[in-house]
């Protein structure tokens, strides 16, 4: 047990912080804790959470994805056309939406792997492309998502918010098994040292491509879930989510230099970031001071995480690998 805690130290800290913040939030909320309040909170958190997972798959292999928000906008716009009608139509629609997400991820991956463009620059360019496509579909916000389906995913099951069940399923049914596969190991190997991974005979290009495809899939899921929450299509949702997803993975203990951190951490980071925002909303602080305090908390959280280097005795250690 103690070993398990030590290995997952970063995640344990993140989840503890989240628990404290959530308690504070529920304590300060004017109507007190009830299913409705928790469901709304969980829905908002899960959107950013899925976006943060998309970012996690880019960061873990020492990349960064500036197109997360753009893929969300594009899939959101696609969903606003397709996820409506009969049960078969909607199933097909969801498959197409997720397929679009994966395709976007593969475009990013191909540019990085075959085009040899740095991920940050490649995704900067593709973000513009994806937002353009989204704008083609929805020049102004509009469209509709099937209300019953949206309700099924955004309300609660026996008092437990569906969003939290989805989050638990992503960790339990996707991440834990994936971590045990060759691909799961490969992600960390490529992120820690691409050279070493290559020389150990790992298919580095395949791992990179799969990692981008998984990132695209989760950005698509984030766009789809956003559609369920808002039941409309909007091409302008991107920029906020891209930058917040980066902040979220860092808060969740995923290192931007690659190879360190887990999907659970990224998810917890996203929940923390959103909870801070919600906490502000009901805290009684003057509304105009809230953006500043939010920025201040983000900066201090990151600075405290970085303060460890001040204790390092050997100056050379701070430069890392």
């Amino acid at each position: 047990m103690r070993n398990l805690l030590r290995i997952n130290q970063r995640e344990v800290i993140a989840i503890l912080v989240l628990a404290v913040l959530l308690t504070l939030y529920l304590a300060t909320h004017p109507t007190g804790p009830n299913t409705y309040v928790i469901t709304i909170w969980a829905n908002q958190c899960l959107i950013l959470g899925l976006a943060a997972i998309a970012q996690f798959f880019a960061v873990i292999v020492r990349g960064i994805d500036l197109s997360v928000g753009a893929v969300m906008a594009l899939t959101n716009c696609v969903a606003s056309y397709l996820v409506i009608g009969s049960g078969f139509d909607m199933t097909l629609g969801i498959v197409v939406v997720l397929g679009v997400g994966i395709a976007c991820g593969l475009v990013n991956g191909a540019l990085v792997v075959f085009g040899r463009i740095q991920p940050i620059v490649a995704t900067l360019a593709t973000a513009s492309l994806f937002v353009g496509l989204a704008l083609l579909l929805r020049p102004t916000p509009g469209g509709q998502i099937d209300y019953d389906l949206a309700d099924a995913f955004t309300l609660d099951v026996f008092g437990l918010p569906t969003a939290l069940i989805i989050a638990a399923m992503v960790i339990g049914l996707f991440w834990v098994p994936l971590r045990r596969t060759g691909l799961g190991l490969g992600l960390y190997a490529v992120g820690s040292s691409e050279h070493a991974a290559f020389q150990s005979g790992m298919p580095v290009p395949v791992i990179r491509l799969s990692s981008f495809a998984l990132g695209g899939l989760f950005a698509g899921l984030a766009g789809l879930y956003f559609s369920f929450v808002t039941t409309t299509g909007d091409a302008g949702i991107g920029p906020n989510y891209t930058l917040n997803s980066i902040a979220a993975v860092v808060l969740g203990g995923v290192a931007l230099r690659g190879g360190v951190g887990t999907l659970t951490g990224a998810l917890a980071g996203a929940f923390i970031l959103k909870t801070i925002g919600s906490l502000m909303f009901f805290s009684g602080l003057p509304p105009l001071a809230q953006p500043f305090i939010e920025g201040l908390i983000l900066a201090s959280a990151i600075a405290i995480g970085g303060a460890g280097v001040l204790r390092v005795k050997n100056r050379l250690e701070v430069f890392g690998k």
Binding site: R257, L288, P291, F292, G295, A299, I302, V309, L310
Partner: peptide, 27 residues
């Protein structure tokens, strides 16, 4: 300071500084 002394990745630190500046401006 954040990048050189605290060794925070510049991408995150400057992002946080940006959101604080936004906050000050709104305030």
């Amino acid at each position: 300071v954040g990048v050189a002394i605290l060794r925070i990745p510049s991408m995150v630190w400057t992002l946080a500084v940006n959101s604080m500046l936004l906050g000050v401006a709104v305030l």
